[in-house]
Design a protein around this nucleic acid. Structure first.
Length: 946
RNA sequence: GCCUUGGUGGCGGAAUUGGUAGACGCGCUGGAUUCAAAAUCCAGUUCUUUCGGGAGUGUGGGUUCGAUUCCCACCCAAGGUACCA
């Protein structure tokens, strides 16, 4: 008897074992089949394990991958781990355990959980970003970037050697490159006279990865750099120590060289519009002009110059002051002695505030006059120079020409400090606020710009500025170069050593440069990164290996870089590495990349919009320029799965007594909500009080005030998180209902891309569907069918084929929730039809298999098939089975449905109209009136107006 | 503030080009089966009603024979974000 029931535990274990042993999902490179690459974003293996939110995207990807196999594709569907990261390092700091051990343990747990869900991953291709065999190639890409520069003329990255040969021939005057702003101009003879060190310094200004002084959030107490997220209210999240802005020499990636291509490339890929929008905003292209103002000075010689970027060169005659960012280099040079004290105090005050703080605080207007003046390029009038923290050093040039009549922030600033607000707009009242509308602008009080529109005046102003040599049209991007150094232990070491302070790359043949062992994972006492604790961390250029630090002699043995790479380094090329993951000679072979090309479908969360997904596109474009990959976008289509939110539970602690009130009793009481673990609450929101007290012993003497004899918790939908005690773990659900039920249920919850609350209650619905499905195949499972083959009825065929049509359309549209409904309808229909035909049940098993692969394989086997169904062809839809001869027409009057009428499908428009008009119910509806109009849509509807 | 997405029964959601609003599932109600429970099966379940109907997809308008779907204005929620010159 037991074999007749749906024993999901046995079935799922059996098929997971079968797939692993037979390597069912291993994909070979170069097969003579169309390829399809389905990729889910790889996880960071955290100690908490998977919760029900994680598998959502994996299930969707797995359904698509399995579907494509049935459709005859050679499917690449790999999985791996983004295994460098902060939590393992923090755990190491606390316990001394090496992050590699923690990571290994966590990966094991992830693997068990993933295996349990029956994913069709090709595990032979697994990658781990923290594996030296993998990060060898992360280091290699870094070296390639170091040896490259961006030629704006060819719009491509080129080998640094081509730049050097340019310099040797004609200096850098004709070179149009993406480079540092402070790059000096030199001739070929200058170049030949430069020392080797100077040459290296200049080349560093062109390399796609380069060293630069960058402002960071430095926490002196912790001796470490903090990310913006780690700072709360100006102090460190950990410990609440003060944080200051400090300049540090760090590696940067010249992603800005690719700004325009990153923007243009978005038109060529099928990614969600909101995600594209956030990349567009992040890149932040704006058109305008750069304008140079000369600082008025008493001393002879070249005047100091302030360069500003403006999107409104048409308003240049409205300038009444200038504002520099407090960090601007010129501030110290131009501040007059009488203003020095005030300026210094202001700079000190702003240094204490994080950039995020400064940006969040929109209301406060603050600034200080420097005492200096600049000369207006046209009027030659003096313009006072202020500093103010509303100007950000990191955007544009860190300086603005303030036009209070045309910009609200300039307007507010001018009002606050009683600076004049000249009006340069014809017929506009600016007594209350600035006029920012560009479309209805007519310029006035502006010399040669008078009477012109925004567009005309902009062009004319730029032209005149160019004549003066004090400006030109410019396109500015908000995108900044990406800082690539981290003062952490658990990341990729840079393949870099220093000779005379200049960085040198380690040759590929000596990679990987592996992370050294350290005793402590904290920064050193002198404030160096954790790798500063390593004793065995110097590069011997003769032996080409890592040696003890004490051997450093700066002739053959040199110190190695102490920073490590950021989290996004390892994830910026992993999708291509899967194509050839064990290649030790190249990042991947030419054959592998030319076969797989790119990712056809990428599934992951939208939180990566401006991080991983932008950096990866940048690296891909770079590798494309170098001829290493044939595609300049790595993923053709991208789907964002929505977040699964948790339903938190709350108990209500009375602040005035030692009582906790049930939800219905909290009115007019001074209570605060306290999270209760959702596992302590049943489906009717009733709390298990004893379990709660055991879980939180602090409350063991607290009185629980009940309503109707029960304690009812409050519910709220929040992000699923350990700290909110609303995490639901997939293991328990797998144990109780099975992986197929979980897979179906996660899909059934709602549209993939929508965020939706998790509620376990509904899982019984899909579970009983699986039981009904099983029951449908019973005659084959218990052998009672024998060898007799029942002919399918036309009803059977109709049910099957409408299911094929719907499911195939749904998968292509990523509408997995409606497929599950379709399966339920199909099984309900076939059950009531008492279908026992193999020619129906065989294709049905294939239809179900992408969603619920274990039960599908088992049923497939019971139908007499000997091999796995993984590559069985997807059933072919045939429209002929759906042809209807009779249509039940809805008959509506003035758009409201009144009754239904069965008519032959092939009846013509006029015949339908006649039949409807002749019907007695029509007469009853019209009550003798003549219909004004009768609309007949054959096959759809009839509407009578009258 | 701006950008994006969304708003449909008690709940998750369906309605692919404008054509029967509420598929499918949960929950709930009643019934069958059972000593009882679980499980299973059957029926009902948008609201309202004087049982003829009437109302109804965030709100208010519009286009149309017909609007959840298209247009305009607004409200609310979620996510993102940049005081961006």
């Amino acid at each position: 008897m037991s074999t007749m029931n749906y024993n999901f535990r046995e079935i799922e274990a059996k098929w997971q074992k079968y797939w692993a042993e037979n390597e069912t999902f291993k994909s070979a490179n170069g097969l003579d089949m169309p390829k399809f690459y389905v990729l889910s974003m790889f996880p960071y293996p955290s100690g908490a394990g998977l919760h029900v939110g994680h598998p959502l995207g994996y299930i969707a990807g797995d359904i698509y991958a399995r579907f494509k196999r049935h459709k005859g594709f050679n499917v690449l569907h790999p999985m791996g781990y983004d295994s460098f990261g902060l939590p393992a390092e923090q755990y190491a700091i606390q316990t001394g355990q090496h992050p590699a051990i923690t990571t290994e343990t966590n990966i094991k747990r992830y693997r068990e959980q993933l295996d349990q869900l029956g994913f069709s991953f090709d595990w032979s291709r697994e990658v781990r970003t923290s594996d030296p065999k993998y990060y060898k190639w992360t280091q290699w890409v870094f070296i390639q970037l170091f040896h490259s520069w961006y030629n704006k003329s060819s719009d491509s990255a080129e080998d640094i050697a081509t730049l050097v040969s340019n310099f040797e021939k004609e200096g850098n005057i004709e070179v149009d490159a993406a480079c540092d702003d402070d790059t000096p101009i030199f001739s070929a003879s200058d170049w030949s006279r430069f020392s080797e060190k100077t040459k290296q310094e200049i080349l560093l200004k062109y390399r796609l990865t380069y060293l630069a002084d960058t402002e960071v959030n430095w926490c002196p107490e912790l001796g470490t750099v903090l990310a913006n997220d780690e700072i709360v209210n100006g102090v460190s999240e950990r410990g609440g120590h003060p944080v200051i802005r400090k300049k540090m020499t760090q590696w940067s990636m010249r992603i800005t060289a690719y700004a325009q291509r990153l923007l243009d490339g978005l038109d060529t890929i099928d990614w969600p519009q909101p995600l594209k929008d956030s990349q567009i905003n992040w890149i932040g292209r704006s058109e305008g002009a750069s304008v140079t103002f000369n600082v008025i000075s008493d001393t002879e010689g070249e005047p100091n110059q302030i360069e500003v970027f403006t999107t409104r060169p048409d308003t240049i005659f409205g300038v009444s002051f200038m504002t520099l960012a407090p960090e601007h280099d010129l501030v110290a040079k131009i501040t007059t002695s009488s203003q020095k004290a005030a300026v210094d105090a202001y700079i000190e005050a702003t240094a204490k505030r994080s950039e995020r703080d400064r940006m969040a605080d929109v209301k406060t207007i603050s600034g200080v006059f420097t005492g200096a003046y600049a000369e207006h390029p046209f009027t030659k009038e003096p313009v006072p120079i202020w500093i103010g923290d509303y100007v950000l050093a990191s955007y544009g040039t860190g300086a603005v020409m303030a036009v209070p009549c045309g910009d609200q922030r300039d307007y507010d600033f001018a009002k606050h400090y009683n600076i004049p607000i000249p009006n340069i707009f014809a017929g506009i009242d600016i007594s209350e606020e600035a006029f920012v509308d560009k479309t209805n602008t007519t310029i006035a009080n502006s010399d040669f710009l008078n009477g012109l529109s925004y567009k005309e005046a902009t062009g004319k102003a730029i032209l005149e500025l160019e004549k003066l040599g004090q400006g030109q049209g410019k396109i500015n991007y908000r995108l900044r170069d990406a800082v690539f150094s981290r003062q952490r232990y658990w990341g990729e070491p840079f393949p870099v050593y220093y000779v005379n302070g200049m960085p040198q790359m380690i040759d590929l043949e000596h990679l990987p440069l592996e992370l050294p062992d350290v005793e402590k994972y904290l920064p050193t006492e002198t404030g160096e990164p954790p790798l500063g604790n390593a004793n065995h961390w110097a590069w011997d250029t003769e032996q080409c290996k890592v040696v003890d630090n004490q051997l450093v002699n700066d002739t053959t043995v040199f110190p190695l870089e102490l920073n490590t790479m950021p989290g996004w380094a390892g994830s910026s090329q992993y999708f291509n590495r899967y194509m050839d993951p064990h290649n030790n000679e190249a990042i991947y072979s030419k054959e592998a990349i030319s076969y797989w090309q790119d990712v056809d479908l990428y599934i992951g969360g939208s939180e990566h919009a401006t991080g991983h997904l932008l950096y990866s596109r940048f690296w891909q474009k770079f590798l494309f320029d170098k001829g290493i990959t044939p595609k300049d976008e790595f993923a053709q289509k991208l789907i964002n799965q929505g977040m699964i939110t948790g339903t938190s539970a709350f108990v209500y602690k009375d602040l005035d007594s030692n009582r906790i009130y049930s939800k219905g009793l909290t009115q007019k009481k001074n209570v605060i909500p306290v999270h209760a673990d959702v596992s302590l609450v049943n489906a009717s929101d009733e709390l298990d009080i004893e379990a709660f007290k055991e879980w939180q012993p602090d409350y063991k003497d607290t009185e629980f005030v009940l309503e109707n004899g029960r304690y009812i918790v409050g519910r709220e939908v929040e992000k699923m998180s350990k700290s909110k005690y609303n995490v639901v773990n997939p293991d328990a659900i797998c144990e109780e209902y099975g992986a197929d039920s979980l897979r179906l249920y996660e899909m059934f919850l709602g549209p993939l891309e929508q965020s939706k609350p998790w509620n376990t209650a509904g899982i019984t619905g899909v579970h009983s569907f699986l039981k009904k499905l099983w029951k449908l195949y019973t005659p084959f499972i218990d052998g009672s069918m024998g060898v007799v083959e029942a002919e399918p009825t036309s009803e059977n065929l109709k049910t099957l084929h409408k299911t094929i049509k719907k499911v195939e359309e749904d998968i292509e549209n990523f509408s997995f929730n409606t497929s599950v409904s379709t399966f339920m309808i199909c099984v309900n229909e076939l059950t009531s039809q008492k279908c026992t035909s193999k020619s129906i049940l065989n294709p049905l098993a294939i239809l179900v298999s992408p969603y619920a692969p274990h039960i599908a394989e088992e049923l497939w086997q019971h139908l007499g098939n000997s091999e796995s169904m993984a590559n069985a062809p997807f059933p072919k839809f045939e429209a002929k089975y759906l042809v209807e001869s009779i249509k039940e027409y809805p008959i509506s009057f003035n758009g409201k449905l009144r009754f239904k009428l069965e008519l032959p499908m092939d009846m013509g428009k006029d015949e339908i109209e006649a039949a409807v008009i002749a019907h007695e119910k029509t007469k009853a509806q019209l009550q003798g009136r003549e219909p004004k109009k009768v609309i007949v849509v054959p096959g759809k509807i009839v509407n009578i107006v009258g």
